[in-house]
Amino acid sequence: MTTILVTGGTGTLGRLVDERLSAAGHEVRVLSRHARPYAVDLREGGPALDRAVDGADVIVHCASSPRGGDEKAAARLIEAARRAGVPHLLYISIVGVDRVPLRYYREKRSVERMIEESGLGWTVLRATQFHELVRDVLAGAARLPVMLLPAGVGDQPVAVAEVAERLAELAVAGPAGRVPDMGGPEVRSLAEWGRAYLAAVGKRRVILSVPLFGRTYREFRAGGHLAPERAVGHGTFEDFLAKG
C-alpha cells in the first residue's frame, strides 16, 4: 500500500483523485485548508504541513487558485517534501502555460519550473480546460440577450474524471518528468460550444463573435491552449451537460 498526499483534495479534481486512489487500496491523505486532520494553508506551511508530508510516498499537487499564491504554496510544499524525503511529487498543470501570457498561466509555469528544479522525483501533466470551466464561461455569457464570445477562439474541454484517472495512474507509476499532454476529444470554436450549451439548457440567444486585442487573445486564436494531437479524452461536452 502506498501513502499518497493529495493537496487540494476537496476540490473538483482532488476529490476524484482521492476517490480513485482510495478505491485502489492506497492510503490517501487529503490536504486542504479545512480538511481534518490535514487542514493546512499551503501558503503558510508550518508544522501541520510537515505532519501531512511525513511518511508520504507520493504527493499529488492539485491545489491551485487563479487569485494567486500558487508559487508561494509550491515553495512551502517543496521545502516540506525535501525535509521529509518524499520520493515523488506529481503536479497537474494546464496546456498553454508556456504560451498564453495570462498571469495565472505564468504562475503555473513558474510552479512547473520550481518542481523541475526541486531535486525531487517529479512528474508534470498538462491538461486542457475542464468541462466545468467552459460551461461556467458560457453560462455567464448567456445571461445577456446577446451571447458575446471571442471571435476565432477554440477550446478543447476534457472530463475532469478522466484527468483524475490519469493522475491516479501516474501517482503510482513513479517519477516520469513531463508526460504527454491530455486534451479533450475535440476542438470546436467557442461559438459552437455556445450553441451546444444553449441547446442543452433550452435557451435561445443570439451568439455574436467579437474580435479582441492583445497578445493573450492572439495566443488563444493561435491555439496555444490546445492539444489537438493529444485528443485522448473520451467524455464529450454534450455528455457532461446531459448529466446536469
Score class of each variant (00 low, 15 high):
residue 19 E to A: 10
residue 118 S to F: 04
residue 60 V to H: 14
residue 44 E to N: 07
residue 19 E to Y: 06
residue 77 L to D: 05
residue 90 L to A: 04
residue 205 R to E: 13
residue 25 G to I: 06
residue 153 V to T: 02
residue 64 S to F: 14
residue 182 M to D: 10
residue 98 D to L: 08
residue 225 H to M: 11
residue 33 R to C: 07
residue 216 T to R: 11
residue 28 V to D: 05
residue 118 S to R: 11
residue 176 A to P: 01
residue 79 E to D: 12
residue 89 L to E: 00
residue 74 A to K: 06
residue 78 I to A: 01
residue 128 T to V: 09
residue 54 D to L: 08
residue 196 A to P: 01
residue 5 L to H: 13
residue 133 L to W: 15
residue 241 L to D: 14
residue 188 R to T: 01
residue 175 P to E: 03
residue 3 T to Q: 14
residue 126 R to N: 10
residue 127 A to I: 07
residue 170 L to I: 05
residue 213 F to C: 09
residue 82 R to D: 00
residue 52 A to I: 03
residue 88 H to Q: 12
residue 121 G to R: 08
residue 116 E to H: 09
residue 130 F to T: 03
residue 96 G to F: 10
residue 61 H to K: 11
residue 10 T to F: 07
residue 83 R to M: 00
residue 182 M to C: 04
residue 167 L to R: 11
residue 134 V to P: 04
residue 129 Q to M: 13
residue 25 G to W: 15
residue 70 D to F: 09
residue 8 G to S: 03
residue 188 R to P: 01
residue 136 D to I: 11
residue 32 S to P: 04
residue 113 R to T: 07
residue 122 W to G: 00
residue 143 R to H: 08
residue 145 P to D: 05
residue 96 G to R: 03
residue 220 F to Q: 06
residue 144 L to I: 02
residue 104 Y to D: 11
residue 222 A to R: 15
residue 22 S to M: 08
residue 231 A to C: 11
residue 213 F to E: 07
residue 3 T to F: 06
residue 115 I to R: 08
residue 216 T to I: 10
residue 2 T to P: 05
residue 92 I to H: 12
residue 21 L to W: 07
residue 227 A to T: 14
residue 221 R to C: 01
residue 178 R to Y: 15
residue 97 V to K: 00
residue 79 E to M: 07
residue 157 P to M: 06
residue 143 R to V: 13
residue 164 A to Y: 13
residue 73 A to T: 05
residue 59 I to S: 01
residue 49 L to R: 14
residue 103 R to I: 10
residue 189 S to C: 01
residue 162 E to D: 07
residue 120 L to T: 02
residue 223 G to M: 08
residue 81 A to M: 09
residue 151 A to H: 09
residue 89 L to N: 03
residue 53 V to P: 01
residue 237 F to I: 06
residue 183 G to L: 02
residue 32 S to R: 12
residue 136 D to M: 13
residue 229 E to D: 15
residue 63 A to E: 11
residue 141 A to P: 02
residue 123 T to H: 03
residue 224 G to W: 14
residue 40 V to R: 09
residue 87 P to V: 12
residue 183 G to V: 05
residue 9 G to R: 10
residue 74 A to T: 10
residue 134 V to F: 08
residue 119 G to C: 04
residue 114 M to Q: 13
residue 172 V to Q: 04
residue 211 P to M: 12
residue 216 T to Y: 00
residue 131 H to W: 14
residue 129 Q to N: 14
residue 18 D to L: 09
residue 34 H to G: 08
residue 142 A to V: 12
residue 225 H to L: 09
residue 72 K to M: 10
residue 164 A to V: 09
residue 175 P to Y: 01
residue 15 R to M: 04
residue 94 I to W: 15
residue 136 D to S: 15
residue 142 A to G: 11
residue 154 G to E: 10
residue 179 V to N: 05
